[in-house]
């Protein structure tokens, strides 16, 4: 891709209590692409997402969103940039005290001038997109894990974000539901051109959705491979990469 990157992560280093989790991680995300981040448990994928999405400030390094430095932006400016993101958290992050509809409505009430009627139309629209029509009045505790993921996705899509981040969308889902979520991600990407950054372990979904893959490693504390899934599967000489892509799915 030769367009300008929408996200530029430069030399991101994260230390917690003196432990370095990731070190000097640099990568780009281009508009409209689906970038998948893989790597073993505990290698810092969720941590990296927190830096890129502005939820945390890295110990060192920069994150540019459309050329604007997120790490030094003022709070107002950062909030404005963050509103262009939709994030699907590893544990869904739905507000437990609110119904699914209220979860979605919150953003619309704060950031748009829509009236109640229009808000409920938008909610219906988003819920239909993820196959949850009719579940608006359920509390997050009253729906299944897979439905929670989809509800969280509906919420993440509320303001039609430019970039969607997913932290293990298919973890804990059965293969069929996981596949349907993949199709949803792919459709959203193709229909709306939404840029996507997806953390996943699931080989099937890597091959079905990703344009490009980054592989992180716990020992290396950074990126050990980058390329299309086929490139990594077939050509990588690195044993860790080879093993990951050639295991039995």
């Amino acid at each position: 891709m030769d367009s300008k990157p929408i996200i530029e992560a430069r030399d991101i280093t994260v230390r917690y209590d003196g432990n370095t989790i990731i070190k000097d991680v640099t990568f780009d995300v281009f508009p409209g692409e689906v970038l998948v981040i893989v790597g073993g448990s505990g290698c810092g994928k969720s941590v990296l997402l927190r830096q890129v999405t502005g939820l945390e400030l890295p110990s060192a390094g920069k994150v540019y969103i459309d050329g604007i430095d997120l790490t030094t932006a003022k709070e107002n400016e950062r909030n404005k940039i963050m509103r262009r993101f939709g994030i699907l958290f590893q544990s869904s992050g739905l507000f437990a005290s609110m119904t699914i509809a209220e979860n979605i409505a919150l953003l619309l009430e704060y950031y748009t001038e829509l009236n109640e009627e229009e808000i409920s139309q938008v909610i219906e629209l988003k819920l239909r997109a993820v196959g949850l029509e009719g579940y608006g009045n359920y509390l997050p505790s009253e729906i299944s894990g897979g439905m929670k993921k989809r509800a969280a996705l509906a919420r993440a899509m509320t303001l039609d974000p430019d970039i969607l981040f997913f932290d293990e969308p298919s973890s804990g889902l059965d293969p069929v539901t996981a596949a349907s979520l993949d199709i949803l991600i792919k459709n959203l990407n193709e229909a709306l051109g939404t840029t996507m950054v997806v953390v996943t372990h699931d080989l099937a979904s890597i091959f079905s959705i990703s344009h490009r893959v980054l592989m992180l490693d716990k020992e290396a504390k950074g990126i050990i491979a980058e390329g299309t899934p086929d490139e990594l599967k077939i050509y990588s000489k690195d044993e860790r990469v080879y093993k990951f892509f050639n295991r039995l799915a």
Partner: peptide
């Protein structure tokens, strides 16, 4: 604390609240 564990605080902050 429960909200923290279930990523709700992050979700809130990510929405600009």
């Amino acid at each position: 604390g429960t909200m923290k564990v279930s990523d709700e605080i992050d979700a809130l902050n990510s929405m600009g609240f």
